[in-house]
Design a protein around this nucleic acid. Structure first.
Lengths: 227, 227
DNA sequence: TCAAAAGTGTTTTGTGTACACCCATGC
DNA sequence: GCATGGGTGTACACAAAACACTTTTGA
């Protein structure tokens, strides 16, 4: 397959030779988000490129010749966190010519949501660690832009579809749920209005259980409905 | 630059050799949409691949080594339509292994909106022509899926941002505008409610002119506000 | 005078938002 | 008994939807 001739038609393409087209590498970058201590966090790795001395970057990798984009993202996630049952969604591709200092790489960004506490990660490298999203000022490559784009998409979707539950343990209280929303949206929410609104969505089921080990009146526990 | 070593870290990547990564080609595909006769249309070309005998496909091309993704899309648009002042937006990337029969191609889809009547296109190939979106059952490659994805995105955005005006001439009536919305959304809209809603958005200015050459009472003409 | 579309308002219904009090529990 | 958060309802503002008649023009 690699040596088959590509026959996409265009005046421009005919002028160039085939070799040019295979000088673009394809990668995926994963914005792996977790929630802990009322903060949204993202998994980053210390960049090993000199140009980015000291800067962190997203987790990503080149896409292999035998991989779909989604498959490659799952592989990155699995390799770096040990998890394979994780929510993953494609957001956008970034292909500026000079975005990678070592060569031409077009990357497709995904975001991923997981519960930091429940999944004790098997982090494959020591340099991989969680960082509070709000504290991140600068990342290697164009990864700050990628992060911001993914966060924007997440904020747009979080009230539309039941994705937020990926950040929570399987049993959670309404307070916990509201705190995750507040962390993502960056605003405080009225408790009564929040409860009304979220209950209308039919995303959760009352487990008829109560919180334990809380230093105050325990709240009801819920689970997310099957999707 | 093409011969610089890529140093993305991962156990998986270290196992493969560099050549593998440059066996993926990168393309863009443009869903070029226009509006005419109360119908939404898309610009298609007859596929020249044997495998897709007779099927149409979207307009696309490989991305050159010196082009951003956006630049490549603008080039495709310019080459195929002669237009360069056209709305263009990235939607999503498609990278399934077998999506292109001649080799591995990862493509990024864009949609584009233009006014068929005002821009008399200089179509570069005779095989390029407009097709009513609703009549399209099948396209070459995964282009039907790409088309559907772009249409879905368009429907989500059309009430959020003033993009629809790209489909209309610079002067238009509220009836024309409503008809475009109806064509895109595939539903009928109440005229009074539509007018109220659209006027609240502050997207248009009353030109203090009237339609001419209509076989009925002429309506007011509007123009889109500067963005 | 007829056909075709322009233009216009009111009522109802639902949703978003602001806001305050009593209750259950652990310490 | 005190601190902490759980749980609840009402009033107002605004947006969405349903709905019909008169007016203007060209043919």
């Amino acid at each position: 397959m690699p040596n088959t001739t590509l026959t996409l038609k265009s005046a421009a393409s005919e002028k160039r030779n085939r070799q040019d087209y295979f000088n673009i590498a394809v990668s995926v970058d994963c914005v792996i988000l977790g929630y802990e201590n009322k903060e949204l966090k993202v998994l980053l790795i210390e960049s090993d490129l000199e140009e980015f001395n000291g800067l962190n970057s997203l987790l990503g990798d080149l896409v292999g010749p035998d991989e779909d984009l989604d498959t490659a993202s799952y592989r990155v996630l699995k390799d770096r966190t040990g998890l394979d049952d994780v929510y993953l969604e494609q957001v956008q591709s970034f292909g500026n010519i000079n975005r990678h200092p070592s060569g031409r790489v077009v990357t497709t960004a995904y975001y991923s949501l997981l519960d930091i506490r429940n999944h004790r990660l098997q982090l494959s490298h020591n340099e991989v660690s969680w960082h509070t999203v709000n504290d991140i000022k600068k990342l290697a490559f164009d990864h700050k832009e990628i992060l911001d784009t993914c966060l924007k998409r997440l904020r747009e979707q979080v009230m539309e579809r039941p994705i937020i539950f990926n950040l929570l343990p399987s049993k959670f209280s309404l307070r916990e749920l509201q705190e995750v929303y507040e962390a993502i949206l960056g605003v405080g929410l009225d408790r009564r209005n929040f409860r009304k609104k979220i209950m209308l969505k039919d995303w959760m089921t009352d487990l008829k259980e109560m919180e334990t080990d809380v230093p105050h009146r325990p709240g009801k526990l819920y689970k997310v409905n099957a999707l």
